[in-house]
């Protein structure tokens, strides 16, 4: 179903995991996609080749000017911009007692400031054209808080507050802002955990399985589509019941 036919989307952190699934799902739904990557060039190149109307741009979302360049690239290449999916994120999990200032700063700069940077770069275009959609990737960790993730939880909780405030600010301009909070999803982030940790994770999820990146991507496609035209400021968990 081409529910995004003719739309142009920017997806940050699109080369792997949930971002990659979003790139593929948006492309399949008919959208033009500009996705960013920072370190995974080989994966980004392969993804660009495998999907239709997909362009990759190496970007550090911590840098505002680089985000502006991505918006300009989307407008130049596809003549319009309709959707931003702020997905780029990192985690450096440690107990606070062991966490360095750099560990804190890197996670906040990438996850929270990166979301600000890309949204700030696109919002004028959305407001001027009286239409647009921002989807911010938060996490269940930002709702419930998780031990050893004070930096990650803070960044993801910050994204929820940012999204709600912005949703109220720009609703009158037909710009929608929503937040997606995945639980444990089959990505490199979860894969890197030890087997015993993974076992405990599965025990904690009422549905007793990990989520698929494609399930998160399908939710994002829905939120970006006209079918979600009356949904804004919402925080949607997709976590198999983890945070009930």
């Amino acid at each position: 179903m081409n529910v995004l036919k003719g739309k142009t989307a920017i997806i940050t952190g699109g080369s792997r995991g949930i971002g990659r699934a979003c790139v593929l799902a948006f492309s399949k739904a008919g959208a033009n996609v500009v996705f960013t990557y920072n370190r995974s060039k080989d994966e980004a190149d392969a993804l660009q080749k495998s999907a239709k109307n997909v362009v990759s741009v190496k970007t550090d979302v911590r840098e505002y000017e680089q985000c502006r360049a991505v918006v300009n690239e989307a407008l130049k290449k596809f003549k319009k911009l309709d959707v931003v999916v702020n997905n780029a994120g990192v985690n450096i999990d440690k107990a606070l007692v062991m966490m360095t200032h750099d560990d804190w700063k890197t996670v906040i700069d990438t996850n929270l400031n990166g979301t600000f940077n890309m949204t700030r770069a696109a919002i004028t275009t959305f407001m001027k054209q009286k239409g647009g959609c921002v989807i911010n990737m938060s996490s269940v960790s930002g709702i419930t808080g998780l031990p050893r993730q004070t930096n990650y939880s803070a960044s993801k909780a910050g994204i929820i507050g940012f999204s709600k405030a912005l949703a109220k600010e720009v609703a009158g301009y037909n710009v929608r802002v929503n937040t997606v909070c995945p639980g444990y999803i089959k990505t490199d982030m979860v894969d890197s955990l030890g087997e015993d940790v993974k076992k405990k994770i599965l025990e904690s999820v009422p549905q007793k399985r990990l989520g698929e990146p494609e399930e998160v991507a399908d939710l994002c496609v829905f939120l970006a589509s006209g079918k979600a035209g009356y949904i804004t400021g919402e925080v949607i968990k997709i976590d198999g019941g983890l945070a009930i």
């Binding site: 001027k128 009158g172 301009y173």
Partner: peptide, 12 residues
Amino acid sequence: SMKALEIVAAVE
């Protein structure tokens, strides 16, 4: 600031 942006868009 929101109204100011509307002015900017209209002038453009």
